[in-house]
């Protein structure tokens, strides 16, 4: 069987809470990272709080929540995470993804993580659809998600206020049949 934990550049891991907290407490100091990640005001958490959150979310398995960390294949460096939240009854998964180490931005790592994430969602969780939202001011993410096969399904107008300016949130989705068609040959 195919190694679904491995992409071209990264592999899926489940970090020890300590290691995850140490990396995250550093990543959160980069406010640009935080503003790309979410629409709520950025905030800071203690290493202890992150560790406890990690223990709750990474170290147990709930059928609707699948949270992973990723390491590079080359350096074995922890660079980010992805999470899938599944609407179990409707077989739809929502993705959150972040590359906390900004030295690894714009080099194909994010796209590789998304490819691994989609493969996990469709081949292991068996969902019918994967969804995500991103900010209009994150063109790097838009390109990456389009590359992974996501279709732009609309934008909620001016729903986020950053630096005094109103921006849209983009909403994307990929259906199981679309993903299978795109990736059928490489299964």
């Amino acid at each position: 069987m195919k190694d679904i934990f491995r992409g071209d550049l990264v592999r899926i891991t489940n970090e020890e809470p300590d290691a995850y907290a140490k990396a995250n407490v550093r990543w959160q100091l980069d406010s640009e990272y935080g503003r790309l990640l979410d629409s709520e005001s950025v905030r800071m958490f203690s290493e202890k709080a992150i560790k406890e959150w990690s223990e709750k979310n990474f170290q147990n398995s709930k059928p609707e929540r699948h949270q992973f960390t990723v390491r590079t294949l080359a350096e074995d460096k922890l660079i980010g995470f992805f999470g899938l939240y599944v609407e179990l009854v409707h077989s739809e998964a929502w993705v959150g993804i972040g590359i906390g180490e900004r030295d690894f931005w714009s080099k194909g790592y994010g796209t590789d993580v998304m490819n691994v994430c989609l493969r996990y969602a469709f081949l292991e969780l068996g969902v019918q659809r994967v969804s995500l939202g991103l900010h209009e001011y994150n063109p790097r993410a838009l390109r990456s998600y389009e590359k992974a096969g996501f279709v732009l399904e609309g934008r909620t107008r001016k729903d986020v206020l950053r630096e005094g300016k109103r921006t849209d949130t983009f909403w994307m989705g990929i259906l199981r049949e679309e993903w299978l068609q795109k990736n059928g040959e490489t299964l």
Binding site: V89, H90, S91, E92, Q128, R129, S131, V151, E153, G154, R155, T156, R157, W171, G173, L175
Partner: peptide
């Protein structure tokens, strides 16, 4: 209201 997003086939 303006229809802004159509999340295709999201509900079963």
């Amino acid at each position: 209201f303006v229809q802004e997003v159509c999340r295709r086939k999201s509900l079963e």
